[in-house]
């Protein structure tokens, strides 16, 4: 119920970041470090952040996503958010993130 985990895979130009657990201020810092390392390492054209396993997210998670969006753009890539649940979607919509970043709610998020 608390803490977050991150599993990152790279395959044919696509970096898939699977996040699970709770994204809050406590967990965001280590997630940020882990993700940024692979963003710079792979410089992928497409980055999919799969939030299907996220149980909770507050504005710290929003900051994490917007920060990665900026970095990925700077590196010439694009970010896709996949599988946010209703409560995560509500926060993304409140901040207008859904107008800035492609969000795929379908299972598997085929690109």
């Amino acid at each position: 119920m608390q803490g977050a985990k991150c599993k990152i895979e790279y395959d044919e130009g696509i970096l898939i970041i699977n996040i699970s657990g709770d994204i809050d201020h406590h967990s965001a810092g280590s997630l940020r470090e882990e993700i940024d390392t692979d963003l710079y390492l792979y410089r992928a054209k497409t980055v999919i952040m799969d939030l299907g396993g996220v149980d909770f997210m507050d504005s710290s998670g929003l900051g994490l996503i917007l920060g990665r969006y900026t970095k990925i753009n700077d590196l010439g890539g694009r970010l896709i958010i996949a599988n946010p649940d209703d409560s995560v979607s509500k926060i993304l919509a409140l901040a207008g993130t859904d107008k800035l970043i492609t969000i795929k709610k379908s299972e598997g998020a085929n690109i």
């Binding site: 965001a28 504005s59 710290s60 917007l66 920060g67 409140l94």
Partner: peptide, 14 residues
């Protein structure tokens, strides 16, 4: 520097 998005009070009031 904390990258929190600045949406805390907006979320609380909404």
């Amino acid at each position: 520097a904390g990258e929190r998005g600045g949406m805390g009070f907006t979320i609380m009031s909404s």
